[in-house]
Design a protein around this nucleic acid. Structure first.
Length: 825
RNA sequence: GCGGGCGUGGUGAAACUGGUAGACACGUCAGACUUAGGAUCUGAUGGCGCAAGUCAUGGGGGUUCAAGUCCCUUCGCCCGCACCA
């Protein structure tokens, strides 16, 4: 397989050097193409299980293959982790660095609506283009493991997993008000709604009652929070997820509903509160307008038509209107009261849209003295405000800080902690309440009324209800339809495929209809990292052996925007598979990092409409892949936003040319001590900075080292070889070429990573700063670890120092070995 | 409101546990080579000052021999969530 001639063009080191002329410029076009072909022909990035080697699983989020092709943002993440993968390989690890395509989704479908081209056809073309682009950048992906989520061999297992969810009661169909995007004509998950707008198209979402398949992610809420402490995710990812899941601890308390005279109406309203200890400050209760009791008790209300009017008005409001306007409105339910179980007092009951259905119990006890929302409401309706926590002034606003309890009978004098415990104990003892943990997280709305997604493998039989398709009949493939358009009544385009829809019940054999909604585009990406471990397995989604060897992902990098979408969903999915015994680990990812976005040179987001998009193809054509890769690493701190600048890119381009040019100065001589120092310093810095995700300064280290080499008349060969090794993760083509030109028969990417020696990197002569009272007055050169007395003497002897000290008394001299001398006078 | 982050030259940014602020680049200026260039190479480059110096890490205060780094306070910016009881 190895054709040495192809590598160094049949020329020796000496011949290459002899041929060199001043005009010789680095011809990246032919050289990069040459190496990409060699790598592909020799399958150098192919990886198999090797139990003699420690594995390292590096993962980047796979792209959606859009028609626009690769964006300069994609390679930032891919290059960074390619650097990591390449370095880990050189360090002797068996590295899995796979790539695939998250290929189901709306753009392909919208394109089909516009042009009639089947999504499968356009997706295939887009994947081919993406693959070409990715290969042109020299990433070390094992392309044999490429997975595509819209491939039936892949989504067979996505469907199989859905059936497992169903079997375990975690997939269920429910009719509920969901977020509906009128523009995409599709229902959305909570996570896909951003400030009341559709995450994808920006249209304002509306509430709509729909039957939906749901996945019970809330059953995992606790573990999704708790287990995040066991993994190494950057803090902002952790806190965003914890925040989103939104755990709060409190109590559910039962308030008996009565008529105006205190006669029991036979209904007990359960409220959720995080502050049961403030119960003596409750002056009214509020139910969400959607609360079932509102309709059930309608005939008891003296103002039933007013109540009904408010309920209907609320239903018409969009989520956005309902949350944007915080002015309190509501209607008292006249004719009924609620009894505070702690003191027996009868208090009025309202409905108001500031109480949300779907969180807690959809009913609250209001403590206006200590909750600003309740306070605002109480002011509008002239309700009493009773202070039960000491410390604040409640004449203008609620007092939401802590304070010891007052006006609270048995709770008086207690602090928050004791009060909470006492209040809950009392409720438990008297049988009207208990402690309760609630989450903001909602179950995952899993149905999409569109075409280009995984069919949900369920059929509905009038006798047997919902039944899964037998697993040996998977995959349930997506049928062809003549018309991809979604419609306003919320049916999927699949609903028109009558022949496909009508089927038989797998249980009773009678007539049944298939589910016509498809899965959301987050389905396939929820487990793709497992498939990479064993991508061609037709018996299982991945073998136990493969999963046990490769999992977990050791380093996963992806966008912040997926923190509460893909990242959360896939953790949930993985935990479910773990509970079923299908995967060996509780969490899928050991380390999660996130790259910053790359903005256009005008500081704006790159977008087609602004016309400021940079196409990676142009950069590769004009400057080469290595320059592009190095620049993306050098552009700035990896986790922060960066601005694209072609001028800065030129600096890196010069750097690449400089390295190429140094070749002619390489000679077979031995390095001196100072040379070794520079070399080991560079090795140590680059190694440490790659691990620490500080790619920008890793490139700086290489530049400093190259500047050092440039200053030499003859470069010792070992120093140039070391440069090629350190450079190869960043600029694999250039380093491979120069490696070959030095007459090597090996590939530099297979070379062992250089070992830095901290001792050799240390200077034996150090420069110390001399300060007087903390102000810099000069520097002195001393042998390393010189005796303190010598250092002091030399510092005091400085002309500058002597002048400054004239007429002053030296009080003390502080010497920090090898760093600084500070003379206090 | 809650949570997370940030503020350093003309620009992108360095600075590990407090220890020579501005590494490495871009840009700019000067020079060299070219008939010419936005190509290449060399040098200079935080501000003020001829200089000795002095002022500089958003502002103010503090701890310390020493603060970009630690503490308090204040201003400004970005991101996420948000009527979640």
């Amino acid at each position: 397989m190895c054709d040495a001639n192809a590598r160094h063009n049949g020329k020796s080191f000496e011949e290459w050097q002899k041929e060199w002329t001043v005009e010789d410029r680095y011809n990246f076009r032919t050289i990069e193409g040459k190496w990409q072909k060699i790598w592909e022909d020799e399958k150098v990035y192919h990886v198999d299980i090797d139990k003699n080697k420690e594995k390292f699983y590096v993962l980047v989020e796979f792209p959606y293959p859009s028609g626009a092709g690769l964006h300069v943002g994609h390679p930032r993440s891919y290059t960074a982790l390619d650097v990591v993968a390449r370095k880990k390989r050189m360090q002797g690890y068996n590295v899995l660095y796979p790539m695939g395509f998250d290929a189901f989704g709306l753009p392909a479908e919208n394109y089909a609506i516009k042009t009639g081209v089947h999504p499968a056809v356009s997706t295939k073309a887009n994947i081919a283009n993406f693959t070409r682009q990715l290969k042109s950048l020299g990433f070390s992906f094992d392309w044999d493991r490429c997975v595509t989520t819209c491939d039936p061999d892949y989504y067979k297992w996505t469907q199989w997993m859905f059936i497992q969810f169903w079997k375990h009661g975690l997939a269920y169909k429910d009719k509920m008000a969901i977020n509906w995007c009128p523009s995409c004509k599709v229902g959305l998950a909570n996570e896909e709604v951003v400030n009341g707008h559709c995450e994808r198209c920006g249209a304002e979402v509306v509430r709509r009652d729909k039957e939906q398949w749901m996945l019970a992610i809330t059953k995992y809420a606790d573990r999704l929070i708790d287990d995040i402490e066991t993994v190494d995710f950057i803090d902002r990812v952790k806190s965003t997820q914890v925040n989103w899941i939104g755990r709060s601890e409190g109590a559910e308390l039962e308030f008996e509903l009565t008529d105006n005279n205190g006669n029991n109406l036979g209904k007990t309203m359960v409220v959720y509160t995080t502050r049961p200890d403030t119960t003596f400050g409750v002056t009214y209760c509020v139910m969400a307008p959607e609360h079932q009791f509102v309709q059930e008790l309608m005939n008891k209300f003296e103002n039933a038509s007013e109540v009904q009017g408010y309920v209907e008005a609320t239903a018409k409001k969009s989520e956005l209107q309902r949350t944007a306007d915080t002015t309190k409105t509501g209607v008292e339910l006249k004719g009924i009261k609620a009894r505070n179980p702690y003191n027996g007092k009868l208090i009025p009951v309202f409905i108001s849209d500031y109480v949300l259905t779907g969180y807690g119990t959809g009913a609250i006890m209001a403590v206006p003295a200590h909750d600003q929302r309740d306070y605002d409401f109480a002011k509008v309706f002239n309700l009493p405000i009773i202070q039960v926590l000491e410390g604040g002034d409640i004449s203008e606003k609620a007092w939401e800080e802590d304070g010891s309890h007052i006006n609270s009978e048995f709770l008086n004098g207690m602090n928050k902690e004791d009060g909470m415990r006492a209040a809950i104990d009392y409720a438990v003892k008297n049988g009207f309440g208990h402690a309760k943990v609630n989450f903001k997280l909602r179950d995952w709305v899993f149905s999409r009324q569109r075409y280009w997604g995984e069919p949900i493998p369920m059929v509905y039989c009038e006798h047997c209800g919902w039944q899964p398709i037998p697993e040996d009949q998977l995959p349930l493939t997506l049928p062809d339809v003549p018309d991809y358009r979604p419609n306003d009544n919320g049916d999927s385009p699949l609903a028109n495929a009558t022949e496909w829809v009508n089927t038989t019940c797998p249980k009773c054999g009678g007539h049944a209809k298939r589910e016509t909604d498809v899965m959301p585009n987050w389905a396939g990406s929820s487990w793709y990292f497992l498939r990479y471990c064993d991508p061609h397995n037709s018996k299982e989604f991945a073998s136990k052996e493969a999963l046990e060897y490769w999992m977990n992902v050791d380093w996963y990098n992806g966008g912040m925007e997926h923190t509460t979408l893909h990242l959360l969903y896939s953790r949930f999915w993985h935990k479910f598979l773990y509970d079923c015994g299908y995967v060996p680990t509780k969490e899928p990812y050991n380390r999660r990092t996130s790259h910053g976005m790359i903005l256009a040179s005008d500081g704006e987001k790159m977008s087609k409409s602004r016309g400021n998009v940079v196409n990676p193809d142009d950069i590769v054509n004009n400057y080469g892949a290595d320059t592009f890769r190095l620049y993306e690493m050098f552009i700035g701190p990896f986790d922060q936003v960066a601005m694209w600048s072609e001028e800065s890119l030129m600096g890196v381009y010069r750097f690449v040319g400089k390295i190429y040019g140094l070749f002619k100065k390489v000679g077979k001589i031995e390095p001196k001590e100072a040379d070794l120092r520079a070399m080991h310093k560079c090795i140590l810095e680059v190694t440490e900075r790659i691990d620490g995700m500080r790619f920008n300064t890793a490139v700086s280290s290489l530049m400093t080292y190259v500047n050092y080499l440039a200053g030499m008349d003859t470069i010792p060969q070992v120093m140039y070889e070391t440069l090629m090794k350190l450079l190869s993760p960043f600029a694999p083509h250039l380093s491979e070429e120069m490696w070959a030109r030095m007459g090597k028969d090996t590939l530099v990417l297979n070379e062992p990573w250089p070992q830095g020696d901290a001792k050799m990197a240390e200077d034996n002569v150090v420069t110390l700063a001399v300060q007087i009272c903390g102000k810099m007055r000069g520097t002195i050169e001393m042998p390393k670890d010189a005796p303190q007395a010598d250092v002091e003497q030399k510092a005091l002897a400085l002309e500058n120092v002597a002048r400054q000290l004239e007429g002053r008394q030296v009080k003390k001299i502080i010497v920090v070995p090898n760093r600084i001398v500070n003379i206090v006078a």
